[in-house]
């Protein structure tokens, strides 16, 4: 089987790439784009570590053959990070001691970004449901849930300040 050319918009920039048959999105992001912030956890679609946003929705990039998402908009942790400072979700994770080894963090933050884009005022249960596909072995989840709720407050108050 031959390689094919796939076009994606990755973190706002249009990219064309030559991919081997069956290449997954995580392969492309990490190996051809150098976007190593997306971490490889299980390659079985069962830990959420490699979560990115595809057209605004969460996707486990280890399970997604890249040829099937031609033309899609992909956002990774690198795209979420603003040029200066941190995104409010990142700030909330940092201030809330919501990282330990840091390996699940990118996936957790991307899930949180998708949740808060859709639901700016989530309940604790909403947050739990949103991250229920993401495994963290260090924290016991409590600090992560708190950080996402804190991020929602940060984003809402920033929006208020902008409106005022």
């Amino acid at each position: 089987m031959k390689h094919s050319v796939v076009s994606l918009t990755i973190n706002g920039a249009e990219r064309q790439m030559l991919v081997a048959p069956g290449s997954t999105l995580i392969d492309v992001l990490r190996e051809s784009q150098g976007l190593t912030g997306t971490r490889r956890g299980c390659e079985q679609g069962a830990c959420g570590t490699c979560t990115v946003l595809v057209d605004g929705k969460t996707a486990m990039s280890c399970m997604l053959p890249v040829e099937t998402i031609e033309g899609a908009h992909v956002e990774t942790i690198e795209g979420l990070t603003p040029p200066q400072g941190l995104h409010p979700i990142q700030e909330a994770f940092l201030q809330g001691f919501a990282t330990q080894c840091g390996f699940c963090t990118s996936g957790m933050i991307m899930v949180a970004a998708a949740l808060l884009a859709k639901n700016p005022n989530p309940s604790r249960e909403d947050v739990v449901r949103a991250i229920s596909g993401n495994i963290c072995r260090c924290t016991g989840y409590e600090a992560i849930i708190d950080a996402i709720l804190d991020a929602a407050v940060r984003i809402r108050s920033a929006a208020h300040a902008e409106a005022a």
Binding site: T76, L86, Q90, S106
Partner: peptide, 20 residues
Amino acid sequence: QRADARGHVTGRTQFYEDVT
């Protein structure tokens, strides 16, 4: 604050697999 937290939240912490 954790010395490594900023790297963690931005995805820039370098794990072994990030060196290719």
